[in-house]
Nucleic acid binder design. Structure first.
Lengths: 116, 116
DNA sequence: TGACAATATGCAATTATCTCAATATATAGA
DNA sequence: TCTATATATTGAGATAATTGCATATTGTCA
C-alpha cells in the first residue's frame, strides 16, 4: 500500500475550527467597523451607534455576538457600557485590512485589488 | 444642532465591504485548511481532497468559491488542475492563525486562548 | 473514437445568518 | 417611587450558506 500524506497541515483541526469561528464573526461589515472604531480605545454603545449610523438594537446585537466570542469585552460605568477589543489577533486582522485598504498591500493584484 | 462624529473610522466603507467579503470566504474550516495546505505551494485537486479527507465535489466547490474571490488561482496541466494562493493578505491571515495556534499569540488571554 | 481519470457544475434539503421592530432591563436622578 | 436615559433581549420573516449526491465537462491514451 502506498504511504500517504494524510494531514500535512500546519494547523491542527481544532485550532482551525476556533480560527474559523473567530474569523466568521469578524467577517461582517458592521462588526469590522465596530472593531476599527474600538481599536484605539473603548467607547460607549451610543458612540458606536452614532459612528456607524445604525440603530441601537442592531449594534447591541453585534456587540454581544463579538463579546460572546471573546473578541470584545465590556465594562459598565453608570448608565453606559463601554466596549473595547479584547483579542489581539483580531487587531492584527484589522491592521491587515487597513494596510490593504491604503494600497499598501503586499498583494500581487488579484480580484481584491482596488483598481476598477 | 450638535456637530457629530459621523465617521471617525480609519477604513472607508467600500474597503470594509471588500475586506468582510474576503474574510467571510476565508472563515470556514475547510477553506482555511485548503489555504493552509496551499500556502507552501500549488497542489492538484486530488491532493487537496486527500489531505482534507473530503469528497471531491465538496472540495471543488470551495476551491471555485475562493477562486471567484481572487483568493486562489489555478492552472491546468493536462488532466489535473493546480491551485495556489493568489492573495497575500490571506497568507498574512493564515500566518496569524498559525501564530495563534502555536501559543505564540500576542493575545492577552481571551475566550480564544488555548489553555483549557 | 472509446474508455478512463480528474475536475466542475447543478440540484435540493437543511441549517444558519441578517436585520427590523417591539419590548425588556438597568441605572441615575428628582 | 417615578421618570428618563442607555443598553439588552426577543421574535419573525427574508436571505444566504452548507453539503451530499448525481451528473456534466475536460483531457489523456490506446
Amino acid at each position: 500500500m502506498p504511504e500517504e500524506n494524510t494531514s500535512p497541515l500546519q494547523i491542527d483541526s481544532e485550532q482551525i475550527q476556533r480560527a474559523a469561528d473567530i474569523l466568521k464573526t469578524v467577517a461582517h461589515p458592521a462588526r469590522l467597523k465596530i472593531i476599527d472604531f474600538l481599536e484605539p480605545g473603548e467607547q460607549p454603545v451610543a458612540q458606536i451607534c452614532k459612528c456607524l449610523n445604525a440603530a441601537q438594537p442592531f449594534i447591541s446585537h453585534h456587540l454581544s455576538l463579538m463579546k460572546a466570542k471573546g473578541i470584545l469585552s465590556s465594562r459598565r460605568n453608570g448608565n453606559q457600557v463601554f466596549y473595547s477589543v479584547a483579542n489581539r489577533n483580531v487587531i492584527e486582522v484589522i491592521h491587515c485590512v487597513r494596510r490593504h485598504g491604503r494600497g499598501n498591500q503586499t498583494c500581487t493584484g488579484t480580484a481584491v485589488s482596488v483598481r476598477e
